[in-house]
Amino acid sequence: MRTRREFLQKITYSAMVLPLLPSWQFGSPHIDSEPYEGPVLRVAIMGLGGYGTRVAEAMKACKKAKLAGVVSGTPAKVKEWQSKHQIPEKNCYNYENFDDLKDNPDIDAVYVITPNALHHDQVIRAAKAGKHVICEKPMGLNAKEGEEMVQACKDANVKLLVGYRMHFEPKTLEVVRMRQNGDFGKILFFQGQCGFRIGDPNQWRLDKTLAGGGSLMDIGIYAVNGARYMVGEEPIWVTAQEMKTDPVKFKEGVDETILFQLGFPSGAVSSCLSTYNMNHLDRFFLNGEKGFAEMQPSTGYGPIEGRTHKGKLTQQHITHQTLQMEEMASIILEGKEPVIAVDGEEGLRDLKIIDAIYKSCHTGESVKLV
């Protein structure tokens, strides 16, 4: 297995051996059957790799969002996407000239789906071009970058959203609803396990210059973010430990496995694992005084499977990226408030925790979060 996205796709296929609605076999059903005549968010995807392709395909089922342009450094990919998605030449850009988006009224937003180290500059450039920005997670390499990205979008009066697709996933939202409703009672503990055995040692995810780290920046961010929305609080301290069994593959600054613990104001704690060296890890567990929730797979492309002390979670699966783009269009166009935030401030909170995790790994000490 080579990448997180292959891992997430594989666990998707594993889950799909369970009985499913027929429409799931062919992509996402529409959000509803009612005709839609309102505004549509016209999106340019920046980065035409595997995940960009997945988002583009998922958007075909959207009513409020559509693919309107592309940004890529590979001319052959641009031509392929032009033909496949009927994208006009005037809506196609490369990494050198995409600042010209400022003069293109046919594109409302740019979805940045490039290696982590490129996010900062590309988001700021897109914002200065006057376009709303959706950025894949992690939003930046560290909190300093995140703060600059948030400020640039504020200065340009555009929205900055982060690709937290799980924030719109129906079973995840049901667990959050139950927690908010008091069904679990006082929250005591959260466990997040996120990992797979990564393959190709030459890929960008194992290059600190492009990735900014290792497993934590890639798969571990699901546990960082999940701990926050499952517990429903912001952590106040972090402890963490790093283990490395293959220093050749996982060079200096590229983490293989990290265990980290978070403490919350209420007294709840979380224990999480992020790894590039163990397969079959995609599980969330939430424990409260009155009940529990368990999800496995918890963050794969779906269907998500889960249960609580009240029984199995049965909410319908909708392709995550379809639902994400539909909801993000509502946020940008209509000012809709999501149940779980997906804005730049949300991305910044995760980056501050990631900074603290790395600091704790290096110092061996607990790090306070403010």
Rank of each mutant, 00 (worst) to 15 (best):
F168S: 03
Y229H: 13
D246V: 07
K84C: 05
N277V: 02
P22Q: 14
M295L: 15
F190N: 04
G192I: 00
M230K: 03
P297D: 10
P35E: 07
S366D: 10
I124A: 06
L141T: 12
Y301N: 08
G182T: 07
H280E: 15
P19K: 12
D106W: 04
G306M: 03
L210P: 00
I107A: 07
I332V: 15
L101W: 00
Y301L: 15
S72K: 01
P35S: 07
A329N: 03
C194E: 11
Q315S: 12
I354A: 04
A44L: 05
L351D: 01
E136V: 13
T319M: 12
A223C: 11
A65R: 01
M16A: 12
G213W: 05
V254H: 11
Q25G: 10
C153Y: 06
S330V: 08
T114L: 09
I87P: 00
M46K: 07
L210A: 10
A356V: 04
G232K: 04
A117N: 14
T209R: 15
Q316P: 02
G232D: 04
I45E: 02
I236F: 11
M166E: 07
C135A: 11
A211G: 06
F168Q: 07
D183P: 02
S271R: 04
R228N: 08
D106P: 11
A56T: 05
I258G: 00
E252T: 10
P338A: 09
T53I: 06
V367D: 06
K10F: 13
S274N: 08
L259Q: 09
F285M: 06
G263P: 01
P22R: 15
R2A: 15
Q321F: 14
D32K: 08
P297I: 08
W24Y: 14
A76V: 14
E345C: 05
K66W: 01
K128Y: 01
K186N: 11
K63D: 09
I31L: 09
I107C: 08
Q82C: 02
S23K: 13
F26L: 11
L161H: 02
A61K: 12
G130I: 09
E252D: 14
G27F: 00
L21E: 14
M46D: 04
L259D: 10
P170T: 13
F250V: 13
D246T: 09
I124P: 03
C135V: 15
G130Q: 10
G69M: 07
E334V: 10
I354Q: 07
M328E: 12
A129Q: 01
N181P: 01
G288H: 10
G130L: 11
S274G: 11
W24A: 15
A76G: 11
D32I: 06
W81P: 01
K66P: 00
A227Q: 04
V78S: 00
L41R: 02
K312S: 09
Q180E: 15
A76T: 13
